[in-house]
């Protein structure tokens, strides 16, 4: 009887530990760290935009969901809502400017302003092309 009790207690404790670990490392796992992630592609901003503009499906299957490092001239920075967006203008449509829009990680929201009008390398997670712009999220400045 004591053995059964001990075994039950052991199973209960192990189950509890599994639940806590599952909650911490699976259910509550952190978001990917795109700042530390290795780039899947390193490409000029002009080339990336051109590929999406000319063959959006092909470019989407290649770049969507990937970590991309781009090099381009930073035209300006916008701060819509709670975001800080680095804007690279690489074309013009009837809606106005087109290009690449990169949302910056909180640690880089201040520094990005110092690169306005300069060439810069940024790294982030590509979410696709929305007819006018390539969107790259969670961006960091690559030194």
């Amino acid at each position: 009887m004591k053995k059964v009790l001990k075994l039950s207690l052991l199973v209960f404790v192990m189950g509890l530990v599994a639940l806590v670990l599952g909650y911490k490392f699976i259910y509550n796992k952190p978001h990917p760290d795109f700042e530390k992630a290795k780039s899947d592609f390193s490409i000029s901003g002009a080339e990336l935009f051109s590929q999406f503009k000319n063959s959006s499906q092909q470019a989407a299957s290649r770049y969507n969901g990937k970590v991309i490092e781009i090099k381009a001239l930073l035209n300006h920075v916008e701060t819509p809502d709670s975001l800080t967006v680095a804007v690279f203008i690489l074309g013009e449509g009837m809606f106005g400017d087109e290009g690449i829009r990169c949302t910056m990680l909180p640690n880089y929201r201040k520094d990005i302003w110092t690169y306005e009008g300069k060439e810069i390398k940024l790294k982030g997670y590509c979410t696709g092309f929305n007819e006018t712009d390539v969107i790259i999220e969670s961006c960091s400045i690559v030194q």
């Binding site: 990917p32 997670y125 979410t127 929305n130 007819e131 969107i135 999220e137």
Partner: peptide, 16 residues
């Protein structure tokens, strides 16, 4: 309007 699905941000990474 057009919205990119991968640009949706969730509080929990697992949900996303």
């Amino acid at each position: 309007f057009k919205v990119l699905i991968k640009s949706f941000e969730f509080e929990k990474a697992l949900m996303q």
